[in-house]
Design a protein around this nucleic acid. Sequence first.
DNA 1: ATTATCTATAGATCTATAGATAATGC
DNA 2: ATTATCTATAGATCTATAGATAATGC
Lengths: 223, 223
Amino acid sequence: MASEVVAKRRGRTKAEQRAASLEQILDAAEYLFSKSGLHGVTLRDVAARVGIHTTLLNYYFKDKANLFEAVFARRAAVTSGRRMRALEEYEAKAGKKPTVEGALRAFLDTDLDLYYEGGEGWMNYGAFSARASNTPEGAELMDVYFDPVVLKLISILKKALPGYSDEDLFWGYHFVTGALMNTLARTGRIDRLSGGICHSDDFPAVKKRMARFMAAGFLALKN
Amino acid sequence: MASEVVAKRRGRTKAEQRAASLEQILDAAEYLFSKSGLHGVTLRDVAARVGIHTTLLNYYFKDKANLFEAVFARRAAVTSGRRMRALEEYEAKAGKKPTVEGALRAFLDTDLDLYYEGGEGWMNYGAFSARASNTPEGAELMDVYFDPVVLKLISILKKALPGYSDEDLFWGYHFVTGALMNTLARTGRIDRLSGGICHSDDFPAVKKRMARFMAAGFLALKN
DNA sequence: ATTATCTATAGATCTATAGATAATGC
DNA sequence: ATTATCTATAGATCTATAGATAATGC
């Protein structure tokens, strides 16, 4: 097994080798962290999953905390950028009359599509980041990588809901992100609770309902 | 410090000593698990916080997984029972015409009050269980302890929303519980994001908005 | 020459068990 | 007598560093 991996590596440039190793390590770490969290995963676990030596992780990523942040960062810029563009496009298109649901669709549907269509890696990242969002380390990374998009969303919601207090808008967002994180986490609880009627992996089912549900929630906060 | 603790223990019956030690251990473990999760806490950490020897944890709780479950279970029955009673009372009071918001208030406000008025221990438990809910171990404990209350809630929502599919009701609940867990977690993210306008600890602010917000969301899922 | 990868290992934990000690119980 | 608590310790990890080996690079 490990020898096959090594064999595959032969005949590539060092830059290619490096890039390939980095990706493989990040994929493995992402998967394991998503299941067991920062402290529930050992560098050994990650190395074993990739089929390399533990110390190579230290070579590429210095230490465990650094690896964790690298996993977080790799896809954070992608989702963040994509949603930012979707929000800007929506804002331009909607002109002076954006709707709450329109803004939320740009924010939520864009992201749900990304995870769902992005394959296993993106689904793992969803679970990883949802789990991280509930921890002190993760919450701070959220601030760094996601504040700009969220503030953009809120600025559009502000236009859609004139007269609303910032407090109402932020609490509304707090509800939205909680629901989104619960979706990305895919714990399987909804499957068991519903006796198999709903499935954690069914992001299309969430997409169909979420923006509408949340938009109505915002509208109900009036006065 | 430890000697003070021991001194305090003197002059009590064994049953009292045992009970007091169990509570102290559970409190310390609850606090630490809420901050760092199952794998981020060592038995040493817990013992050090209580001022006892590590091995006493094994004496009382067998092993770490068992301690974790004991922390989960201690207050789970309380919150679960309280909410079940609130739902039953509401159901009796509302007769054949329950409302979505009424049912959600029985479910959500009852719980938010419990945490907020229950003091530090309950707030810690909230963060503990929110964090646990995002993990495989925790999600299964959720099933065991909370399925009955949740199914009760959904049965009332079914009466309030005739014609709704089970799928809609379960996904709606999925959004509600995500928002609730995000509240209980108190990561401080909303504080930083809002520039100090909102506070993670401000459960009254959540209580004021949540049931109304979520009820409107459910109503918007029609057809 | 440079860099990707592995070997060997130090030092620090961590969990859980066995057995001793010191209280309370009757 | 029973049980709460502590001491001592085995055995298993785990992280990170130092230094060796084996590729690619020019």
